[in-house]
Design a protein around this nucleic acid. Structure first.
Length: 274
DNA sequence: ATGGCTTATAGGATAAGA
C-alpha cells in the first residue's frame, strides 16, 4: 500500500494538481492537510470520479483535513481522544472569566481505517511564537495525541500518524538553524513532544529511509525559498510497532514544488506491504 | 527556469501560515 501525506494549502485551488498526482503516483491512501474549506465545499465528486472515497473534516477557511482512499475507508473519526481545542477569543480573554467553557475543537485530525491500517491525517498547530497561547496549545495537542497513540500501540494496532507536524526535529532539517533561533518549530519542548512518539514505540518512516541531511518537505513562498533550496523538513509519518515492520521505502516528491500553482509543501510517500 | 508570498473572506483589509 502506498500512503502519502500532503499539506495542499487549499484543496479547491489545488484539486487539479492533486488529482494529477494521484493519477501518476500509484497512491492508495492520501492524507491531506490544510484543505481550507468546509465539508460542503470539498470537491468530493472529483475524487470519486478518480476512484477514491473521501472523508473530510473542515469547519471554516482555516485548517481542514481529509483522507482519500481507494483501498477502503471505514470508522472515520474527526478527533482523537482528549484532543484539545483552541479559540483566539478564549486565549485572549482573562482565564478567570472562562470558567469551564471548553474552547472549540479545530479541524486538525481525521482518522480512518484504510486497507487494514488506521490512518490519521494530522495538521499539528503552528504555535505562532514562543509564549503565545497557540504555542501552549501546540504542546498540549501533541501530548494528548501521544497519549492516545500509546494506547493504540499497546493494543497492537497498525497505526500511521502522518501529516504536517510543524516541528523541525533536527538542526539539519532546516536550511539554516541560526535563522530559527528563538522561533517555533525548533524549541526543545516541541522537539521533545515530537520525539515522544519514538519513546512510545513508534518509528518515523521517512527518516528511516531518507536519512540524508537537508532533505526538505516545505519551502516558503517568499524570497525565492525554493530556487535557493531554503526549506524545512516538517512532514512526517510515525508508524506503530505493528505497522513499522511493513514499511519498504519512502520518498519526497520534490518536483511537486515546481511551477505555477504549487503548494508550499510536497507529497511525502511511504510504501507498506499488505 | 525551480524566480522575489499565498490563501480565504458577506469582497478588501485582515488573519494565518513557518
Amino acid at each position: 500500500m502506498r500512503l502519502v501525506t500532503w499539506n495542499v494549502n487549499s484543496i479547491r485551488t489545488r484539486v487539479d494538481r492533486v488529482l494529477a498526482f494521484l493519477d501518476r503516483s500509484g497512491t492508495d491512501v492520501l492524507a491531506i492537510q490544510e484543505t481550507k474549506c468546509r465539508d460542503d465545499q470539498f470537491p468530493t465528486a472529483a475524487f470519486e470520479a478518480a476512484g477514491y472515497e473521501v472523508a473530510h473534516f473542515g469547519l471554516s477557511q482555516w485548517n481542514g483535513v481529509a483522507i482519500a482512499s481507494r483501498v477502503g475507508l471505514a470508522d472515520v473519526a474527526t478527533h482523537f481522544p482528549e484532543q484539545p481545542g483552541f479559540a483566539k477569543a478564549a486565549a485572549d480573554a482573562d482565564p478567570d472569566t472562562l470558567l469551564d467553557v471548553a474552547p472549540p475543537l479545530e479541524a486538525r485530525a481525521i482518522g480512518a481505517t484504510c486497507g487494514g491500517v488506521r490512518v490519521w491525517s494530522l495538521y499539528v498547530p503552528h504555535g505562532r511564537a514562543l509564549g503565545d497561547p497557540h504555542y501552549a496549545y501546540k504542546l498540549a495537542w501533541l501530548e494528548s495525541l501521544r497519549t492516545a497513540a500509546k494506547t493504540w500501540a499497546d493494543a497492537g494496532d497498525a497505526v500511521a500518524l502522518t501529516g504536517d507536524w510543524n516541528v523541525i526535529p533536527l538542526d539539519t532539517d532546516v536550511y539554516d538553524a541560526a535563522d530559527f533561533a528563538g522561533k517555533t518549530h525548533v524549541s526543545p519542548p516541541e522537539r521533545a513532544a515530537f520525539e515522544a512518539f519514538g519513546e512510545a514505540g513508534y518509528t518515523e518512516l521517512t527518516r528511516k529511509f531518507l536519512p540524508e541531511e537537508h532533505t526538505y518537505t516545505y519551502w516558503d513562498y517568499q524570497q525565492l525559498a525554493f530556487p535557493r533550496n531554503k526549506g524545512l523538513r516538517i512532514d512526517f509519518c510515525w508508524a506503530s510497532p505493528a505497522l513499522a515492520g511493513r514499511a519498504t521505502g519512502a520518498a519526497i516528491d520534490r518536483d511537486e514544488r515546481k511551477g505555477k500553482g504549487a503548494s508550499d509543501h510536497v507529497p511525502v510517500i511511504v510504501d507498506l506491504t499488505d
